[in-house]
Simulated assay, not measured.
Amino acid sequence: MIRPATPADLDAITVVHAEARATYYRGHLPDEEFDGPAERARTRAAWATGLSRDEPGAAVLCAEHDGRPVGVAAYRRVDGVMTLTQLHVAPAHWRRGIGAALHEACVAAWRRDGVGTARLEVFEPNKRAQAFYAAHGWYPDPDTPRDGTHLILRLAVGRTAKPAPLPQE
């Protein structure tokens, strides 16, 4: 079940976030940068802010299984552009359609709100996420294809055109 997240979900969301990030950052960044005490505190504070944010067109959604959050997605406007800021599924729940359901809930909300395009950033070594996004119609941003270690992807909301391939190493 996909539902709006609440402040009561904060602990579960931070765990899902940490578990998912560890799968793609480990081996590419020092553990302290994605799983150290300072980063865990920063992550918790950021999610607390996101859950308390009251701005039009912004949301944090949870995917629930057996009564507990196992996935999370967040979006809001950044510099006037709808941005999928987070989409994570607990690794123990991968390959069950949870990420696809969260993604579709975001896209449905954007369509209702008349959003024309959306953007996201994905860690370049995270090929699993890149394949997920490409399968859902995201394509490399033609104007700004990267920002440091992240690729920038775009989605034409409401359009189902075949996506352009992501750059290969």
Rank of each mutant, 00 (worst) to 15 (best):
M1T: 14
D9S: 00
T14M: 10
A18D: 07
E19A: 10
A22V: 05
T23K: 01
H28M: 13
F34K: 05
D35W: 06
R40L: 11
A41Y: 03
T43F: 14
T43D: 11
R44A: 13
T49W: 15
E55V: 15
G57Y: 05
G57D: 00
G57S: 00
L61P: 00
C62D: 05
A63H: 02
H65N: 11
V70Q: 03
V70W: 01
G71S: 01
A74K: 08
G80P: 05
V81W: 08
L84R: 09
T85I: 14
H88N: 10
V89N: 00
A90K: 02
H93R: 05
H93S: 06
G97E: 09
G97D: 10
E104Q: 15
A108I: 09
W110T: 00
R111N: 02
R111S: 03
R112T: 06
G114A: 01
V115A: 02
G116R: 13
T117S: 05
T117C: 06
T117W: 02
L120D: 12
E124C: 12
P125F: 10
K127R: 13
Q130Y: 07
Q130N: 09
A134P: 07
H136C: 12
W138A: 03
P142R: 02
D147H: 15
D147M: 14
G148P: 04
H150T: 13
I152D: 07
L153F: 12
L155S: 06
L155A: 08
T160K: 13
K162A: 14
P163D: 05
L166C: 01
P167H: 04
P167I: 00
